[in-house]
Amino acid sequence: MVWSRRHSAFNLCRYAIWGIASLCLLPFIFTKKNREIVKEMSWREWLTIIILGITNYTLTQGAQFLALKYLPASTVTLLLNFTTVLVALFSLLFLSESLSLKKWAKAL
């Protein structure tokens, strides 16, 4: 019973943080330029954004918890921090994107 109370309190805090973060980002949506972009979006674009958001969040969080089950937390943290470098390398290899020195510096 103690674990479930802690677990529910943790979830409540996590959702509160997401809510606060969402509220902080809302003003950026309501700039004149962004309002025009949002108004022009079709329902398919909205559906794509929603599906990508749900699946990407589910996959990354699931992979992170699975990694924490089998690896030490320090190793998982190092892998998570290495993500930007991996994205840069994969975009170079698979998408043939040319990355400037400035972009590499940001990735590192």
Rank of each mutant, 00 (worst) to 15 (best):
R5S: 14
T31D: 03
T84H: 02
V87S: 10
F10R: 07
F90Y: 11
R44S: 10
P72C: 01
T84N: 08
A67H: 04
V87R: 06
A63F: 15
R14P: 07
T77N: 11
C13D: 09
S74H: 03
T58F: 13
L108G: 15
A88M: 06
F94P: 04
K39W: 03
W46A: 02
V85Q: 03
E45A: 03
L25Q: 08
T58P: 01
L71E: 06
K102S: 12
I49G: 03
L66T: 05
K32R: 14
E36I: 05
L52R: 10
N81H: 10
N81G: 11
R44P: 02
L25D: 04
I54L: 05
T77E: 11
I20D: 00
E40T: 11
W18Q: 13
E36T: 04
A105P: 00
I54G: 01
I20T: 01
A73E: 08
E36M: 05
Q64D: 08
L80A: 06
L95P: 01
L92S: 05
M1I: 12
K32P: 10
K102E: 15
N11D: 12
A16G: 06
L59K: 06
Q61D: 13
S96W: 06
S91D: 15
I29R: 04
L108S: 15
F94K: 10
R44T: 06
C13A: 14
C24K: 12
N11C: 13
Q64N: 10
T75A: 08
K33L: 12
L89F: 09
F30N: 12
R35C: 11
S96Y: 06
Q64P: 00
L93H: 01
E36S: 07
C24H: 08
A16T: 05
I49P: 00
L23S: 02
A63Y: 12
L23M: 06
L52H: 10
L93C: 05
L80C: 03
I50Q: 00
W18I: 15
S4T: 15
M41I: 00
F30T: 07
L89C: 13
L93Q: 04
I51Q: 00
P72L: 02
S91T: 15
V76R: 04
N11T: 13
K39A: 04
W104C: 04
A21S: 09
A63R: 12
E40A: 13
N81I: 08
F65E: 09
V2E: 14
R44A: 10
R5K: 14
P72T: 07
F10G: 06
T83V: 09
T31N: 02
K103C: 06
W104V: 05
I51S: 02
L12I: 14
F28G: 07
T84P: 03
R35V: 09
L80D: 02
V76I: 02
N81C: 07
I29A: 06
L93A: 05
V76P: 00
Y57V: 10
Y15F: 15
C13I: 15
K106E: 11
F82H: 02
I49W: 07
L86W: 11
A105C: 05
S74Q: 05
A88H: 03
I37C: 05
E97S: 07
L12E: 12
L86M: 09
P72F: 09
A105S: 04
L47Y: 03
A73Y: 02
S98Y: 13
G62H: 12
A88P: 04
E36P: 01
